[in-house]
């Protein structure tokens, strides 16, 4: 039996909006530590890792570790029916082949039950090493989303380079090329508007912009985004989920042949 009650139901709504276009079907794993998901897109170029820690739920009952296969589009359709201020509860009985999403309005005057069929999805979990990254950029998530959107109107790949000057996003295409340089800026009145760059050594990697634009659908989850780069690893684009966990997108680089 599992029953997870999330007072900030809109977090789950935003999570589904962030992943439903990247991954179609995925297993949600439920254990005593929390509610998580790890899945690759169909081309195995990107991977999304979600963690919602059990402490972040108002009520978290998970009698035994369980993995529930869900179609994320269908799940998103059901969560769209939840109000932004609704309390969302995820319920499933042991051995059941369905999961129920319950939406309660803040003043408890409306309660909705949406039951969805579960699927059998055989997915292997990948080992993601905790790595030392050559460069870690923290910046406003809206700014990162704007840069990815703007550059994708010029080219389809972005070179992200971190030097002591700052972080540079470059692209080129038929009509020309574009460079956006962001410098460290901590003299802002609101911390979430600051850009900080931690560089251990210069790094420069090339990525497909369409995946980056897909990742920025998670922008509503956090005012800041963290981009961690290392020359031998996929980039990690991370959005923290308020006091609950995170959603991390890993993107494999394009390698000069």
């Amino acid at each position: 039996m599992l029953e997870l009650r999330l007072v900030q139901g809109n977090l789950l709504k935003k999570v589904l909006e962030a992943v439903k276009d990247l991954v179609t079907d995925a297993n949600f794993d439920c254990s005593s530590t929390g509610f998580s998901l790890q899945a690759m897109d169909s081309s195995h170029v990107a991977l999304v890792a979600l963690l919602l820690r059990s402490e972040g739920f108002e009520h978290y009952r998970c009698d035994r570790n369980v993995s529930m296969g869900m179609n994320l589009n269908n799940m998103a359709k059901m969560l769209k029916c939840a109000g932004n201020d609704d309390i969302v509860t995820i319920k499933a009985d042991d051995g059941s082949d369905t999961v129920t999403f319950m939406f309660e309005s803040p003043n408890q005057d409306k309660i909705a039950d949406f039951e969805m069929k579960l699927m059998d999805i055989d997915s292997e979990h990948l080992g993601i090493p905790e790595a030392e990254y050559h460069a870690i950029v923290r910046m406003p998530s809206s700014e990162f989303a704007r840069i990815c959107k703007d550059l994708s109107s010029i080219g389809d790949t972005v070179v992200i380079s971190v030097t002591k000057e700052g972080v540079k996003f470059s692209t080129r295409g038929d009509i020309g090329n574009a460079n956006v340089v962001c410098r460290q800026n901590t003299t802002v009145d609101k911390p979430e508007e600051s850009t900080t760059i931690e560089m251990h050594e210069p790094v420069s990697l090339t990525f497909a912009l369409r995946y980056m634009n897909s990742f920025t659908k998670a922008t509503p989850l956090s005012s800041t985004v963290t981009i961690s780069l290392s020359s031998e690893l996929p980039v990690v684009v991370e959005y923290k989920i308020a006091e609950m966990g995170y959603i991390r997108f890993y993107l494999a680089p394009k390698i000069e042949d």
Binding site: S43, H44, V45, P129, A208, A252, P253, D257
Partner: peptide, 14 residues
């Protein structure tokens, strides 16, 4: 040109 690598080239199956 640039060849797109895949995640599974970097992260092994558990």
């Amino acid at each position: 040109g640039c060849n797109q690598s895949t995640i599974t080239e970097f992260f092994g199956k558990l």
